[in-house]
């Protein structure tokens, strides 16, 4: 016997790796087949486009959330960031602010609020959960104060195109979401910043000792999350033609759900955007299916919670070393 211990055995398929890689796609396929058998409306083009359009808002928020969770953080304030940036922008657009400036303003507010999150975490040494929980409350409070509890409706048409226009057959929100996903995937997989995000999530102490400016990177990550939330808010108000004071409430939950179902680990450094994309679509398909099957909306929450729990159990089962 001269086999070296470190050599992989040639025979045998590594099922856990396969499952991990394609498990989510398989679940999605099973769900799609099931729904198309149960409802003849499910597999129509208009319904599928509808699913994707519904998924765009959460998908964009979930892109930022993916980066945050990869650094072993969490951003609970995305819903409030979305709300505050949306109402301020809606108000100023109504007062005649040029559309490009309005968009920049919204994204700027998102970046600023994200930066405050990041600074509280890195300079104040406040755990991300607490820091962003604070921002959730503050952001919502400011939104209510700004709106005095009343919605802003009737936005300029020049602005509403990002929610309602189409590029050929593809609705604008989907175009924007695809661009966001592709850009983020390139950044995460091809750039120094992307590498650092994974390294910081894996081991922040080692990252600092390897010369990574961990504080700066983490602030940047929360800023990106804020910008994503603000962008999602723009699309949302453009579609609804209205910015409600309670807009975006609970969106952090949907985004976290998409990321977690997509296989990104809460302990950081493991996962990615492809999973988040699938997770977002899976959750939206599930919502859509429950709708088509006339299941009470009250059940949606329950089903979503169960799905997340099942996803975590599944990842734990195929990879027991995972935290």
């Amino acid at each position: 016997m001269t086999t070296r211990a470190a050599q992989p055995r040639p025979e045998g398929v590594n099922w856990s790796v396969l499952l991990q890689r394609f498990g989510l796609a398989l679940v999605y396929a099973a769900l799609a087949v099931g729904l198309s058998l149960l409802s003849d409306r499910f597999l129509t083009v208009s319904n599928q486009v509808n699913i994707f359009r519904q998924a765009t808002i959460n998908g964009i928020v979930a892109v930022g959330m993916t980066l945050v969770i990869l650094t072993a953080g969490i951003d609970l304030s995305v819903g409030s960031i979305l709300a505050l940036s949306a109402v301020i922008t809606a108000d100023l657009l109504k007062q005649g602010l040029p559309v490009p400036l309005g968009i920049l303003l919204a994204l700027g507010i998102g970046a600023l609020m994200g930066m405050v999150n990041g600074l509280m975490i890195t300079r104040g040494n406040i755990p991300p959960f607490i820091a962003t929980l604070g921002m959730l409350t503050v952001g919502r409070g400011l939104t209510l104060m700004y709106t005095q509890g009343k919605p802003f409706t009737g936005l300029p048409d020049a602005f509403r195109f990002i929610g309602t226009a189409s590029l050929g057959p593809v609705p604008m929100p989907i175009v924007v979401a695809v661009i966001v996903f592709v850009l983020a995937a390139i950044v995460l997989n091809r750039t120094r910043f992307g590498e650092y995000v994974y390294l910081i999530g894996d081991n922040p102490v080692a990252a600092r000792l390897a010369g990574v400016n961990t504080r700066q990177m983490i602030v940047l990550v929360y800023m990106i999350s804020g910008v994503c939330a603000a962008l999602a808010g723009l699309i949302l108000i453009a579609r609804l033609d209205s910015a409600q004071p309670v807009i975006g409430a609970g969106y952090e939950f949907n985004a976290i759900a998409a990321v977690v179902v997509g296989g990104t680990s809460f302990s950081g450094g493991e996962g990615g955007l492809l999973g988040t994309l699938l997770g977002t679509i899976l959750i939206e398909t599930l919502n859509n299916g429950l709708n088509l099957l006339n299941v009470s909306p009250l059940w949606e929450q329950v089903v979503k919670g169960v799905v997340i729990a099942l996803a975590l159990l599944f990842y734990k089962a195929i990879n027991p070393t995972r935290k």
Partner: peptide, 15 residues
Amino acid sequence: QGLFLGQSVRSNASV
């Protein structure tokens, strides 16, 4: 303090 245990040999060596 040294390793990124869940990351690739490449990322660990070339950080």
